[in-house]
Design a protein around this nucleic acid. Structure first.
Lengths: 141, 141
DNA sequence: ATCATACTGTTGCATATGCAACGATGTCAA
DNA sequence: TTGACATCGTTGCATATGCAACAGTATGAT
């Protein structure tokens, strides 16, 4: 018997992730036309305060070049402020502007509503899905 | 309290899918340097026989332009043969060459081994994960 | 103090993607 | 039959990505 792509976990994960990402992107599209990297950087800055590109790279699973470019675009859009690190001058300190914080306030609500929607669709399976994703992703989340 | 990206399902799904895809790509990298679209087209042709670009597009969740270009590359590599459809001349009939079939034989085995590895990592959660992915992906798998 | 080495963030470049034309072909009603 | 309209696969173009190089800065041994 031949190989069945429809039962192949990497394929199914990839399709599911792409669909969910699209659904979510459609929701915040009206609020702000962000790319996925821009959204991740924004969300991380909201939680972490002033951090470097390297920190973001490590925490949100993105290439440093992608983080760098996303940060530049967000700065141009007035959502993020770049400044130099006090002691280590190689580092850039990124932080949200008031406009960035205001936007994340709205996006955070949208994201939480969407999360609730997904959890409702998943019902009892939600907890196990979470555990499975943790296992698949490796030790660190 | 602020929004937590690490608990956000679209993010976690996306990260997990990317990691697993990388792991799998590393496995078949040695066997054949395929892109993900090329791999999907190959796998579908192996199961479906002679089909059109449109059929593949519908079945493997890829843009038609991506399928078209992947098919062209696979043809250049001697893995796929393109021919005209007998009655509807708009359609292209794609099918594996003997070399393509031979490659899929090897890749299918690699994929099944990898699947088994993933299932082992997931343990009891595998079944629930499958069901959750089906729910998230919508009605059709 | 000096030098080799490592690290940070940006940029260049090749490639992949998404979307909208486009030419070619097919369908269907009048 | 003709002509309006739909469909198929390809291609052009703008943008996003991944990787390697790069300049600037820090670190640590001598």
């Amino acid at each position: 018997m031949s190989f069945d792509l429809d039962q192949f976990l990497p394929y199914r994960l990839s399709v599911a992730a792409a669909r969910i990402s699209r659904r979510f992107a459609a929701l915040y599209e009206a609020e702000a036309g962000l790319t996925v990297p821009e959204w991740r950087v924004l969300a991380h800055l909201d939680k972490a305060g002033a951090v470097s590109v390297r920190d973001i790279t490590a925490r949100v699973n993105l290439e440093k070049s992608i983080v760098s470019r996303a940060a530049t675009r967000l700065e141009t859009a007035g959502l993020v402020r770049k400044s130099g690190h006090s002691t280590d001058r190689r580092l850039v300190a990124l932080e949200l502007t008031p406009a960035g914080r205001a936007l994340m306030q709205r996006l955070g609500r949208i994201a939480e509503d969407f999360q609730a929607e997904l959890l409702a669709e998943l019902g009892d399976d939600a907890a196990v899905l979470g555990r499975a994703l943790t296992r698949l992703t490796g030790t660190e989340v």
